[in-house]
Simulated assay, not measured.
Amino acid sequence: MATFYIPTINMMGNGSLDEAAEAIKSHGFKTALIITDAMLNKIGVVAKIQSLLGTVGVKSVVYDGTNPNPTTRNVSEGLALLKQHNCDCVISLGGGSPHDCAKGVALLATNGGDIRDYEGVDRSAKPQLPLISINTTAGTASEMTRFCIITDPDRHIKMAIVDKNVTPLMSVNDPALMMGMPKGLTAATGMDALTHAIEAYVSSAATPITDACALKAVTMISENLRTAVNQGDNVAAREAMAYAEFMAGMAFNNASLGYVHAMAHQLGGFYNLPHGVCNAVLLPHVQQYNARACAGRLKDIAAAMGVDVSAMDDQQGASACIAAIVELARDVAIPAGLSELGVKAEDFDTLATNALKDACSITNPVQGSHADIVAIFTRAM
């Protein structure tokens, strides 16, 4: 049996932000808590959203303290502000960090307790407070998934909360909000989306529906990411990446992920590193490991990336896939190895132990040992 999760309403394309304001009004919300980060507030994007809400009669208050890797403290601070102002909905504005923080706040607003209580799969009892997620990046797909990643600073780990009740009510992907993304962020979030698509396609929980979404996302990312990075004002490339990251999200939201994310979560939690960059560095090394079980699927991905695989067998196709991933990462200036990010080999034992506990590890196509994970980290240095 397969279950397919997705928000009830998903608005896409140029101008969708204006339509979203009317949709928010139609739900009868009175006061929204906007969860975002300091930069989006500083450059005026938050003020634009507040103005739009004001025109449809919705009051708003702002929490802009979200860290790049949102923490348990961020969730607690946001929840306190929500309660103080009796907010009846939450609006997340930004990329994965504000979206995940907002999911944590909205979940606790109705279920109570501490966000640590919900680590794992479907631990909540009640639907969260209504959440509208307005996306400004093209990578995490957190605006439409049931995944919520929160850093626990006390344990130095990222908690994976996978819960149908953190799925937003509405997602908004207006590429006009993505035009100002700098090159580095565009590259990291784009490679994050590619990782979502590839891990979903080789996942042990893949279905024909997730396969279709994943392969189309791989093709669109391969065709548009370089342009989006190098020509940030290219509307067509930005819109294509918005659609691609959403389809990759549809794929992994339902097929889940694998060792790339399970390992990247540990790097992010331990060293406070950017998630998309960690994924990009690990991706080819994990797929090299997975090739023993899913070479044919990796060959399909190579074809989706534009490689002519017609004369290749499955193992050759898998090698071509890994080479294409490395080439794309290099073209968008992703670091070549973990050593460039300050990762230390003496930490691999702890990182591997925690990676195998991560919910994302369950659907990796090869179930490995602690030593296997340490070996992958080592190759990725």
Rank of each mutant, 00 (worst) to 15 (best):
A237Y: 03
P175D: 01
A214P: 07
T207D: 12
Y201T: 04
A214M: 04
S171N: 11
V218M: 11
A214T: 02
F246R: 00
G184Q: 13
G180F: 06
T227I: 13
M178H: 07
A214G: 03
P208F: 13
A240R: 03
M179D: 07
P175L: 03
D174S: 06
N234H: 12
M191P: 14
P208R: 11
R226S: 14
S204A: 13
E223F: 06
G190M: 05
N173M: 12
A217E: 08
A187K: 12
D174M: 00
V218N: 07
L225E: 01
D174G: 11
S204E: 01
A236S: 13
V218A: 07
A214N: 09
G184R: 09
V172W: 02
A228S: 13
N224G: 07
L194M: 15
T189A: 04
A228D: 01
H196N: 01
M178R: 03
L225F: 09
I198K: 11
M220F: 12
E199N: 07
N230P: 06
L225Q: 08
A248Q: 12
E239K: 01
M191W: 04
D211M: 05
T207V: 04
E245P: 04
A240I: 05
A248H: 00
F246M: 15
P175S: 11
G232H: 11
A242Y: 02
A228R: 00
L225S: 00
Q231L: 04
D174E: 03
I221T: 00
A212C: 12
D192P: 13
E239L: 01
G190V: 02
K183A: 15
V229W: 01
T210S: 13
A176Q: 15
A214R: 02
V202C: 13
A193C: 00
G180T: 11
A242N: 05
M179Q: 13
A244E: 01
T195R: 01
A251K: 05
I209W: 12
M170I: 14
S222N: 15
K216T: 13
L215S: 09
T189I: 10
A242G: 14
L225V: 03
T210L: 08
T189H: 00
K183L: 04
I209F: 15
L194S: 11
M241A: 01
M250T: 04
N224F: 04
I221V: 15
G184E: 14
A240N: 14
M191Y: 00
N230G: 15
S203H: 03
E245D: 12
T210E: 03
K183M: 14
I209M: 15
G190L: 03
G190P: 06
V218F: 11
T219P: 02
A240K: 11
G180I: 00
A197P: 01
L169N: 04
E239W: 05
T210I: 00
G190Q: 10
M220E: 15
A236W: 02
R226A: 14
M170H: 12
D233T: 14
D192N: 15
T195P: 03
T189D: 04
E223S: 05
N230Q: 13
L185P: 09
E239Y: 07
A248V: 00
T195V: 02
A193Y: 09
A188D: 12
V202Q: 07
M191K: 11
A187F: 03
T207W: 10
A242Q: 05
A236F: 10
T219V: 09
T227E: 13
A200H: 09
I221G: 06
R238V: 07
